[in-house]
Amino acid sequence: MIDVMLLVLFMIGLGGILVCVGVFLIPIGGAPAAMSTATGVATGCEMITMGAGVTGLFLAAAFYTKSLMFVIITAGVSSALMLAITMLFTNLIVIFGKGVPPAFATKERDPITGDPIKPYVTPGTVGHGVPTAPYLGGVLGSFLAGAGGALAFTAMYRFSSGATLAEFVGVLPQPAPQVAAMALSVITAVGLYLINANIAAYSIRGVIESWLDPKFSKLPRVIAACFSASILFGVLILLVSIGGVG
């Protein structure tokens, strides 16, 4: 039993780290981006974290019997797709609706395409839309966040439905889902995402331009905080779901 509990705690902690690294890679603009005065997606850090995590959670809940690797990768891809579409429509609205080109002010040229990008920044703003480099960072970031969300949820569900150690990484032989265990795991997983999302949100202070931002150097400290907070609250999750529910 102890080995299973330690594995669950480790999976929850790893999920927290993946969610946090994902947030650092996603270009988050917050309210300034909604007015096209900052680069990124026009919503807050916490909502994006929740969105990416919950998209991963949906996939993990749908494929609850499949092997862990399959669940994580599918959930990551679905989450990346979700954010890619969001950023595409952000760009469509910024370019064709507001008539401003995607640009950012931290670098002279786009590191991926090599095009000059700073001259297109409107004076008085720090950028607008989602240019190529933050776009790719965002796709990778939401892949990681979705995978982390799926990892944490899968660990919680398999623990509360009483899986053995081998069943955690392999196929879960369940003919029908245990709905009570799934409902409990969804609520505890959402609680955990909210706790991790806030650590990321406080450390980036609301706005980040993917991996080009100077705030990206804060990442090691934030990973340590997310891992310890996830383990801390993972203990409570173990206490709630130990021995199976319903």
């Binding site: 850090c45 916490e46 609680g191």
Partner: peptide
């Protein structure tokens, strides 16, 4: 001034609250 909106800290409170409340209601 936390750097993010006021709702985020409310959601943090509820995230911590729901986990401890479930432990409380179970034991």
């Amino acid at each position: 001034g936390l750097g993010t909106g006021v709702p985020s800290i409310g959601n943090l409170a509820i995230g911590m609250g729901v986990l401890t409340a479930l432990v409380g209601l179970r034991y």
